[in-house]
Lab assay of single mutants.
Amino acid sequence: SKDAAQYVYDEAQKGVTQVTVNGVTFKFDNWQKLLKYAQKLLN
């Protein structure tokens, strides 16, 4: 959902490398990768 994507995006902006959405945890090597993933979700 857009809300989940926005949440992931906001978390990535904080510099975190993992985020949990609806009980599913996504882990990334660095926050830039998390940010890229979030941007994909938002598009």
Results as ranks from 00 to 15, higher is better:
Gln18Pro: 03
Ala5Trp: 12
Gln18Trp: 10
Ala4Tyr: 12
Tyr7Glu: 14
Thr17Ser: 02
Val24Pro: 07
Lys36Glu: 08
Glu11Thr: 11
Leu42Thr: 01
Ala4Gln: 07
Gln32Thr: 06
Ala4Trp: 09
Lys2Pro: 04
Gln39Met: 11
Gly15Asn: 13
Leu35Trp: 02
Val16Ile: 06
Phe26Glu: 09
Lys40Phe: 04
Val24Met: 13
Tyr7Leu: 15
Tyr7Gln: 15
Tyr7Ser: 15
Ala5Arg: 02
Lys36Gly: 08
Gln32Ala: 06
Gly23Ser: 03
Tyr7Ile: 15
Lys33Glu: 09
Ala5Ile: 07
Asp3Tyr: 02
Gly23Phe: 15
Val19Ile: 12
Lys40Met: 10
Lys27Pro: 14
Gln6Val: 10
Val19Leu: 13
Asp3Asn: 13
Thr17Ala: 09
Asn30Met: 10
Tyr9Glu: 14
Val19Tyr: 01
Lys14Ile: 14
Val21Gly: 02
Leu35His: 01
Gln18Thr: 03
Asp10Trp: 14
Thr17Glu: 06
Gln32Pro: 06
Gly23Ala: 14
Asn30Ser: 07
Lys14Pro: 09
Ala5Glu: 09
Gly23Gln: 03
Asn22Ser: 13
Gly23Met: 07
Tyr37Lys: 03
Lys27Gly: 11
Trp31Tyr: 04
Glu11Leu: 13
Gln18Arg: 02
Val24Gly: 01
Lys40His: 08
Asp29Tyr: 12
Gln32Gly: 06
Gln18Glu: 03
Asn30Glu: 06
Val24Gln: 08
Tyr37Glu: 02
Leu42Glu: 00
Asp10Cys: 13
Lys27Tyr: 14
Gln39Leu: 08
Leu34Thr: 00
Lys2Asn: 10
Ala12Gln: 04
Val16Leu: 10
Val16Met: 04
Asp29Phe: 13
Gln39Ile: 05
Lys2His: 08
Glu11Pro: 08
Gln18His: 10
Leu41Ser: 00
Asp10Val: 13
Phe28Thr: 04
Thr25Gly: 07
Trp31Ile: 10
Asn43Met: 06
Asn43Val: 03
Tyr9Ser: 13
Asn30Tyr: 07
Thr17Gly: 09
Ala12Pro: 08
Tyr9Thr: 13
Phe26Lys: 06
Asp3Ala: 02
Leu34Trp: 02
Lys2Tyr: 03
Ala12Ser: 08
Asp29Cys: 14
Tyr37Ile: 10
Thr20Phe: 06
Asn22Tyr: 14
Trp31Ser: 00
Val24Thr: 02
Lys14Asp: 13
Leu34Arg: 00
Lys14His: 09
Val21His: 10
Lys27Asp: 14
Gln6Ala: 05
Asn22Leu: 13
Thr25Phe: 14
Asp29Ser: 10
Lys36His: 05
Lys14Met: 12
Asp29Gln: 06
Lys14Phe: 11
Asn43Ile: 04
Lys2Asp: 10
Ser1Arg: 03
Ala5Tyr: 05
Gln39Lys: 02
Val19Ser: 04
Ala5Leu: 10
Ala5His: 04
Val8Ile: 13
Lys40Ala: 05
Thr20Trp: 14
Thr20Ser: 10
Lys40Ser: 06
Thr25His: 11
